[in-house]
Write a protein that binds this DNA or RNA. Structure first.
Lengths: 211, 211
DNA sequence: GTCTATATAGCGATAGAC
DNA sequence: GTCTATCGCTATATAGAC
């Protein structure tokens, strides 16, 4: 948004390559664990170019975080709307979150590592945009409860639990693999995961069967 | 277990102080984010003493991890036994895990950070001891299902979900606080969390009401 | 055993040639 | 705009006095 001007297609290619490489490298080890030299190698560029485009390691990291947070919000939030029956809405939300965790596990891990260390850079997002989204989605849940479509619950906590369960298949993927004794998670494993999470959420919230 | 001999009470005091300080400092930032000088300051000892007792930063980190893993296993695993009714057993297990997350959030975060970066040091534990424990607990779940005390589920995935939900209140505590708009989580917040997780697990698994 | 003072390496960042 | 060579700092680790 500031630093060197935004024009030029070579610039676009380079910054895109750097951001993709940075997401890969930050995904293992977080901010402190990543080396600028690793990111440069991953992007196939000299290290100096990273500083030319992004100035400092922290500014590059912030750029990566920003991309992730944007995707986080777009991903699934429009499933939770009052017109939809809760069974369909919640199941769709869970499936979208699980699909996101599988599609971009690195993004999920970077987000998790940032929150783990106290979210120094994400705090404004958590207290602002995310809080408002949760309040809006919570109102929908309360609407469903009031209409007898599901149990009365603590809506925010239900979302914390959904996020925890879906993200665990990205963030703790190696633990899941190790415990199941797999080299990597099969499609069947992910189907079992989806079935389990969906059942816990729908039956756990007493959602009346979809029609 | 190796390096300097294990006798002497001054040694016991120093190593205990260092391990406690290390757990605090590793809890924010993980292995790479921690500075030996921070740990020394936190323990009130000169930095050189850390190296005298533990040799390297990695060996100190391993010692901290070992303590955490031991506690992890002791914490709650004896709740899941076939004699107990599943409602009581699963509710007790969830409560014990949540209490553990509240009592030692730093330990939970260190474990999470280690798994996040691919669990290079924990892999033997995950594939060995933890896998065996899950297999044993899964057999109990299947026993309950076979006796009509609860639905037929994917037992391992149920445990992944329980761990995810309970640990999120330690590992992602700042996110929970931010979204709820709190300075810190109140006793009421934690009671709501416990109620939500317990409901999702018990109703989600179709556990027949306790008698 | 305990500490101060220092060696050594690796990292982020930059200067300056092309 | 792009790269090579290098600076300066900081962190782990150790040598050696007490």
């Amino acid at each position: 948004m500031d630093s060197p001007p935004e024009t030029g297609t070579a610039r676009r290619d380079s910054t895109a390559a750097i951001l993709a490489a940075a997401e890969t490298v930050f995904a293992r080890g977080g901010f402190e664990g990543a080396r600028m030299s690793e990111i440069a190698a991953e992007a196939g560029l000299p290290k100096a170019n990273l500083h030319y485009y992004f100035g400092t390691k922290e500014r590059l990291y912030r750029a990566v975080l920003e991309r992730i947070v944007t995707a986080w919000l777009d991903a699934a939030s429009d499933w939770i709307v009052p017109e939809r029956p809760p069974a369909e809405a919640l199941a769709g939300y869970v499936r979208a979150k699980l699909a996101d965790a599988q599609a971009r596990p690195g993004a999920s891990r970077i987000f998790a590592a940032e929150v783990l260390r106290g979210a120094p850079l994400l705090m404004p997002f958590l207290q602002g945009e995310l809080r408002r989204r949760v309040q809006a989605m919570s109102a929908v849940i309360e609407h469903w409860s009031a209409h007898g479509l599901m149990d009365t619950v603590h809506p925010a906590h239900v979302f914390f639990c959904i996020w925890a369960m879906t993200q665990t298949y990205a963030d703790f993927g190696v633990q899941v693999q190790a415990v199941l004794g797999r080299d990597r998670l099969s499609a069947q494993d992910m189907a079992d995961a989806a079935a389990t999470v969906t059942a816990l959420v729908l039956k756990g919230c007493g959602v009346r069967a979809a029609m």
